[in-house]
Amino acid sequence: MPISPSSSAQAAREVVALRLRDLRKNAGLTVVELAGRCGWHHSKTSRIENAVTAPSAKDIRAWAAACEAVDQAEDLVTQSLNAESMYSEWRHQVRRGMKHLQDSVVQFFHETRLFRVYSSTMVPGLLQTEGYAAALLSNIAQFRGIPYNDG
């Protein structure tokens, strides 16, 4: 089963965040110390490390310099830009609504010959009732901030 584009984008963001956290820890710096060296508030450091806020290229270069790891900056910038590109593409896709996303996989569905489904948190699609599916889609759309009744 394909991985959700939003999950892939978030995972890519988290990899960058983890690498930045590792740089800070390897340099023996606290969140507050790193923030002081970079000239920003410590909450920004925390948001970046927890993949809540994506760092800019300037942020990454400052972070690497503060950790005396300038040699890793450009690789991290590239990795971060790739993650943000994935996220932007996903946002572009969902901006048109759930119907468009669902219609985009119809051909893939028709060509599929074997389904293997496991979910510990929800009923698999083929076993869902209409009411369950409607409530699930409504909650997902609300969570993502996208239109639900789009046609």
Results as ranks from 00 to 15, higher is better:
S120K: 11
I3C: 01
P124T: 00
L23A: 07
R95F: 01
L34F: 00
R91V: 09
W90C: 00
I48D: 10
H100I: 14
F115K: 01
Q72Y: 01
F143S: 14
R24W: 04
A65W: 02
R21E: 06
W63K: 03
A83V: 06
Y87C: 02
E14Q: 15
K44H: 13
N26D: 13
T30A: 05
Y87H: 12
L29D: 14
V70G: 05
S120I: 01
M122F: 06
L127D: 10
S120N: 12
Y148D: 07
R113Q: 11
R113T: 10
A141M: 11
G131L: 11
R95K: 04
G39R: 00
R116M: 04
E130H: 14
A83P: 04
Y132K: 03
V31K: 02
E74G: 02
E111N: 07
G97T: 01
E33N: 03
R96W: 13
Y118F: 10
A135C: 09
A134Y: 09
R37F: 06
Q102M: 15
E49Q: 08
G131S: 14
P124K: 00
L81V: 01
H42T: 06
V32D: 15
E14T: 10
A65R: 11
E14C: 08
A62T: 03
I3G: 01
S85D: 05
P55C: 00
L20W: 05
M122W: 07
L127T: 01
H41L: 11
W90I: 00
V52E: 13
Q128M: 09
F143N: 07
H110N: 10
Q72A: 12
L114M: 03
R24G: 02
A69T: 05
E68M: 06
V31T: 09
A57H: 06
I140C: 08
L76H: 03
V123I: 15
V70I: 07
L23G: 04
H41K: 08
G151S: 13
F143T: 15
A51L: 05
S56E: 11
